[in-house]
Computed example of a mutant assay.
Amino acid sequence: MVSETTAEALPGTEAQQGFPAHECCAGEELRGLQGFPGKAGPPEIKDDLGSQGEKGEKGERGILVANDLHRQVTALERKVQVLEAELNRYKKALILKNIKSIGKKIFVSTEKEDTFDNGKFFCAKAGSAFASPRKEAENTTLKDLITPSKQAYMGISAEQTKSTFMYLNEEAVTYRNWNAGEPNNLKNEDCAVMQDSGKWNEVDC
């Protein structure tokens, strides 16, 4: 308790025994000499540790998560590359005139006359291949691209076997629309062409 009167510590009074002097109401403080240190208190008592908690669930290992993300990114990059390749094929096709599509196939005519080998090279450069109708509807679509009184090479040849006409990827031909009496296996007639009627004939490549 703070006293409302001012008092000084006198020799031999409480101040010398280490007790605080009285304080005045104005806030001025008079202190006596510091007393002797008291006895040390009892040592600190440490609490016992509590019981161990339940083991938590095992977390995912960072390396596994990183590997999984890497695989997903790689798969997405491959898909993007495939889509870009398809887009480039369509772009190249759209540059040319006379385009017909059926299902997932797009038939394109250059309206130029050239050799079979040059045609193969041109188609490959455009990311495509010689047209190879595999059913009647495709044959009809391709026929509509042929200039009247002209004919067009197809991706069907007997160059490899010299007897049996096959697709250029060496698969057996599954659809045929040959003219009567064709193919007749005459010498050097190893390439198939489509006439403006839609019928097939064999010619020298």
Rank of each mutant, 00 (worst) to 15 (best):
V2P: 12
S3F: 02
T5C: 11
A7R: 14
A7K: 12
A9C: 15
Q17W: 05
G18T: 04
F19Q: 14
P20S: 09
A21H: 03
H22W: 04
C24M: 12
C25I: 11
A26S: 10
A26Y: 10
E29A: 05
L30R: 05
L33S: 09
L33M: 06
F36S: 08
F36Y: 00
F36R: 08
F36K: 07
F36A: 08
G38V: 06
G41E: 02
G50D: 09
G50H: 00
G50K: 05
Q52D: 12
Q52N: 09
E54P: 15
E60V: 14
V65R: 12
A66I: 13
N67Y: 06
D68S: 12
D68L: 13
L69N: 10
L69Q: 13
L69D: 07
H70N: 09
H70L: 11
H70Y: 04
R71F: 13
L76A: 15
L76D: 13
L76E: 15
Q81M: 13
Q81F: 07
E84P: 04
A85G: 03
E86Y: 02
E86I: 04
E86S: 08
E86P: 03
N88M: 12
N88I: 12
N88V: 10
R89K: 14
K91Q: 14
K92R: 09
A93K: 03
L94E: 12
I95M: 13
L96R: 03
K97Q: 13
I99M: 11
K105V: 12
K105F: 08
F107C: 06
V108Y: 00
S109I: 04
S109T: 06
E111G: 06
E111S: 12
K112T: 15
D114M: 14
D117G: 07
N118F: 00
G119C: 11
F121V: 15
F122W: 09
C123N: 05
C123G: 03
K125G: 01
K125M: 06
G127V: 05
G127R: 03
P133I: 02
P133G: 03
R134S: 10
R134M: 07
K135R: 09
K135L: 03
A137E: 15
T140E: 11
T141F: 01
D144H: 11
D144K: 15
S149M: 05
A152S: 15
A152M: 08
Y153F: 15
M154F: 04
S157Q: 06
A158L: 06
Q160G: 14
Q160V: 13
T161A: 08
T161E: 08
T161H: 11
S163W: 07
F165R: 02
M166I: 02
L168S: 00
E171K: 11
Y175C: 06
Y175P: 14
R176V: 14
W178D: 07
W178Y: 14
A180P: 10
P183N: 01
N184F: 05
N188M: 04
N188G: 03
E189C: 15
C191D: 01
V193Y: 00
Q195T: 15
D196Q: 13
N201K: 08
E202Y: 10
D204F: 03
